[in-house]
Computed example of a mutant assay.
Amino acid sequence: MSSETSTPYTPASASTTVAGNETVTLADEIKKYDTAKLIEYLQGQENLGLNEPAIKILENEEVNGLDFFDLTEEKLERHGMKMGPATRLVKFAKECKDKKLRAFSTYRSLKEVLAEYNLVSEGTEVIPLFTPQIHEIPDENKHLELCMADIKLRLKSYGTLVITSLESMRNEYVSTILHTALRIAEDATNKKFSMRPEYEIIGDESSGRVDYAIKESDELICITEDKVQQKLTEGFAQNIKQLESSFQTNKRKQKRDEDYFDYLYGVVTSARDWHFLLYSPGEILQASKAPFSIEFVEEALVENSEEYKTLRKGVKKVLGIIIGLLEDRACVEDKSDRKRARIEGYRSKK
């Protein structure tokens, strides 16, 4: 269920609770939709079976999310809708008022989330591994140079990034890394990527805003959760639920296909430490049991110092992984069997 509507050293939660509550109703979320988003959402509800004439009536009458809950069968039939779809829409609107969605930010127990994948642990060590593609970045890459210059400007202002650094400071490093990865990935693939901070996603059971959503065309392909180091396991739990909901969002936009299969990538980061997840229905994998780290230390301001070399090496490694994930997900053939084969290949290499 989709709706459109970001945050630095440490994995830190910038996850936003929905209206500050543990749960909201599905109706509360749908009320935010404009006409186009409402129609897209309704078309993704297979049980409604809406045909083109029914959709056209909603479109012509400019029915948005707020209007949807004031519809009656009489109103719809007056504008030419058949009794069947009119009845189903009104019944569905009532069901939406009763349907509760849990906020992403309320998932604090990784053990609870992993149990849904038949993994028993309170930590991340039991999550199986996958082997990510890594994009090799030439040292002279212009985007890499701009990224390093931007990082040095921040280091000069903020000093060494430590566990107590403000979330806003960490966010600036995360944003710089992600934007750089998108630009290099665009050059490598000739595809257009976009990044949406504080992007709202509505799943079948959960909803909320994710720190950063990366899209290729209109499809979600990567979700980033920013978490403080002390709350790393919360970051994993929330990112997994965000990926589940993103998968459901993508699925709704597809033509009905009983064999539909897809996968997405997740990132849990503190700016310093970076963890990468691969989600497919019923399965969660991680790129490494240990984090990939970037050492943001003030001593790195000295060009060609060991600290600068370590910083640059860490940045290149993390960028290479993110770019590799984007390239893989954006360029895979849009067929379920090919995507399954791709995931199986990653498993076999671990």
Score class of each variant (00 low, 15 high):
N239C: 15
N64H: 12
E200M: 01
A36C: 04
L325Q: 14
Q242I: 05
K82P: 00
G345L: 13
A149D: 13
L220H: 09
I321S: 14
T5Q: 06
D34Y: 01
T176G: 04
N304D: 15
D259G: 03
V24Y: 03
K94L: 09
N64Q: 08
A287N: 04
S245N: 00
D337G: 00
F247R: 06
R347E: 13
I184D: 11
L42Y: 03
E125W: 00
L153D: 13
E125Y: 00
L161N: 03
L278K: 15
Y279R: 04
D337W: 05
P281A: 02
R329Y: 05
Y199V: 01
C222Y: 06
E344K: 11
L182N: 11
M83K: 08
T10E: 04
A93E: 10
Q242K: 09
T87C: 00
E145R: 11
L161A: 14
I184R: 11
V210R: 05
E205P: 00
K111R: 15
K100E: 10
K241V: 14
P291Y: 03
K94E: 15
L178G: 01
S105M: 00
A271G: 11
R347L: 15
E22R: 15
L326V: 08
K31L: 05
E136K: 10
G20M: 07
H275C: 10
I55N: 02
R340P: 03
Y173L: 09
